[in-house]
Simulated scan of single mutants.
Amino acid sequence: MLVVDDNKVIRQLIRVNLELEGFEVVTAADGAECLDVVHQVRPDVITLDVVMPRLDGLRTAARLRSDSRTKRLPLAIVSACTQYEVEAGLDVGVDAFLAKPFEPDELVSLVRQLVERGESDPSMQLGIRAGADTSATAPSGGTSGVVGGGGGGEGAECAGRSGS
């Protein structure tokens, strides 16, 4: 598991919540650092913030998708993103979105879904927006959901406070 966020407090919050559930977690402060460590760490899932210095989450996702070694790696945006960012994320092949602020159990559930999906069919092409809508309204008022690979991108939103 690789957690990428420029905010140290949020990075640690995500790391601790996932470690409490048994995940091994490595963190990176931005997309450039993510690309530096992803091949050493070889994570099962990557969570990305959108707004980060040097290399933002959407450009990082696009680079991961263009690399044959990481093109099928499950990617989740964890950010207070706009509808534009959701659409741009879907266009580059992001698999899931979780709005900030989020409940820890929402995060854990989303990561588990992505890990299980990757384990159940490692050859599946992620990022395809076809089939039924699998997004779910989160208790915090945001929306989280796994999309792609049979999920539904239409209607998926990453709502929350503006900014990240």
Rank of each mutant, 00 (worst) to 15 (best):
D91H: 13
C81K: 09
R72A: 12
A76Q: 05
C81V: 08
C34F: 13
K100S: 09
I46H: 11
L55H: 06
G57M: 03
V37F: 02
A99T: 11
S66D: 13
V37C: 05
V78M: 07
T47S: 15
V51H: 09
D44Q: 14
P74H: 03
F102S: 02
R69E: 14
I46N: 09
A76N: 05
P101E: 06
A96T: 02
L64F: 13
T60A: 13
C81W: 01
S79C: 05
V38Y: 00
T47I: 12
L73F: 11
P53C: 11
D44Y: 07
F102R: 01
D91F: 05
A99H: 04
R65D: 03
L48K: 00
V45D: 03
V38P: 00
G89E: 02
D49E: 10
V45C: 01
R72M: 10
V37M: 06
M52I: 11
P74L: 00
V45N: 02
V86C: 07
G57V: 05
P101H: 04
E103T: 00
P43A: 07
L64H: 08
L98R: 05
A61V: 09
C81N: 07
L90E: 08
D44C: 04
L75M: 10
D49M: 10
L35D: 12
D105A: 07
G89P: 04
G89R: 01
T47D: 11
C34R: 12
I46P: 06
D67A: 07
L64S: 04
D95K: 07
L75R: 00
P43W: 01
K100P: 10
E85A: 15
A96V: 03
G57A: 03
R59E: 14
G57C: 04
L64Q: 06
R69C: 02
H39Q: 13
V38H: 00
D95V: 04
F97V: 02
Q83A: 15
I46G: 04
V94P: 03
V45E: 06
L64Y: 10
D105G: 00
D105V: 05
A61L: 05
A76I: 12
D56C: 11
D67Q: 03
L58N: 11
A62H: 09
V50P: 04
R42D: 10
T82A: 14
V51L: 12
A96E: 01
A96L: 06
A99P: 08
T47P: 09
C81D: 09
Y84F: 14
L73V: 08
D56Y: 10
S66I: 00
L73A: 07
E33Y: 06
D36Q: 15
L75Q: 03
V51Y: 08
V51E: 13
K71V: 11
V86I: 10
L55E: 10
V51T: 13
V41F: 02
D95Q: 05
V94C: 07
R69V: 13
A99Y: 00
T70H: 02
P43D: 05
R59L: 11
D91Q: 14
T82E: 14
L58R: 09
V78G: 11
E87W: 12
D36E: 15
P74I: 00
E87K: 13
R65I: 06
S79I: 06
D95E: 08
